[in-house]
Design a binder for these strands. Sequence first.
DNA 1: GAGTGGTCTAGACCACGGT
DNA 2: CCGTGGTCTAGACCACTCC
Lengths: 239, 239
Amino acid sequence: MAEPLYRQIIWDLETKIKNNMQPNEKLPSERQLLEQYHVSRNTIRLALRDLEERGIVYRLHGKGTFVSTVYLDQINLGNMYSFTNEMKLAGRKPQTQNRTFDLISPEKSVAEQLGLKEGEKTYKLVRLRLADGEPLLYSETFLPERLFPDLTMSDLNNDTLYGVLKKKYNEVSVMVFEDIQAVSLNKEESKILGVDIGAPALMIYRRAIDENNVAMEFTRATARGDKFIYRTRQYNNLS
Amino acid sequence: MAEPLYRQIIWDLETKIKNNMQPNEKLPSERQLLEQYHVSRNTIRLALRDLEERGIVYRLHGKGTFVSTVYLDQINLGNMYSFTNEMKLAGRKPQTQNRTFDLISPEKSVAEQLGLKEGEKTYKLVRLRLADGEPLLYSETFLPERLFPDLTMSDLNNDTLYGVLKKKYNEVSVMVFEDIQAVSLNKEESKILGVDIGAPALMIYRRAIDENNVAMEFTRATARGDKFIYRTRQYNNLS
DNA sequence: GAGTGGTCTAGACCACGGT
DNA sequence: CCGTGGTCTAGACCACTCC
């Protein structure tokens, strides 16, 4: 199966909404869509549910499905395991440039975040993430050498970061802490991301720990404010 | 239909997981559950999808469905955002100005977020939060009149918002969605928060729903980028 | 009553993980 | 190979909204 039917429908509807529809405009009913795409109702509903969860449409029982007003052309950064996946979901062509990869003695703040002992080193991976050729997010990731000996650039070029950490080192993050801050881009940052100086951006500080409560990753990332939204869901547990 | 089948299955599975199962323990397969509950596979999958989205189980293609590690900590996961508490923790003197409080017919986007029917009204509470006398966060909160009849300004002056909603109306949020965005402040916003025009800020859109899956609160807030960090914690189960 | 989304059934085949 | 979750079909009835 190349790509599931419902995913193709998601992309198609999303494109049509973006290009040809207005907020609060009514989409065709599920039965109409079913005929248009020659699929079953279940498949249509899979697609609509995805669009609803991502805030692109809203559904009213007995009335119909409508284009959401809050729909911004922005990508969700929250709970992001994989930039690549998020981009594919949004129907865009993701690209990652691994710019530099070095073994360094980290600055103090990084050493603290990773709980490093005196003299311990980390790998530093600098990446630029693009979608459809447009730079969107700049990140610096620090990985303790102690946990990931002999990590190489070619490891990273052949798999996702978390794929490598799991497969080569059997390291999986159990908990992730993220701090999100609003900033204005300085000269260098704005140049890298291709926007004006002073443009708003999200700074994301991310710390991941593994099952042994050991810090395994620290990342600071800068994301274009006009292209990203950070979405979270929180549960207040029952009883 | 009293309560949908899949919802009853959700409750049942959730109870069993909580009382009798360990993290990473395997659940019965979808085909087994289908026989246990005498329902179709679609219905089982609706239930499992909900449990998965709420982080209670995780599913692995070709392997099965497993209990998440979330229930390891019986701690309350939600970072229910309490400005007052956060500030006290930070050693600052918190202050809340309740600026206006009215019963209004909300704009369309708000009505949509709260799932209001035609003609339903909401209370609108405008607040300014300060720390050590310095304004940090401006917020507009919308509360459906249907859920909170006879809510008054003096209720709010004598307790926290969530305290009132719980004590007077027995309404507690079970799930909270928040969207965070980086913006530049316009003239009015910058004046209210006492910073320059164009200064970076976090826009926070918050939607809370209660145990009956009814939207009980919608808030949009603007927080100074130089003074405010949004902190989250996430539990992972995926590879 | 007509049209909408919400729930549900009883099947089917595909893709993945392990034996 | 088998068992798993992932996708999909072609129907059905229910609950809601509006006329």
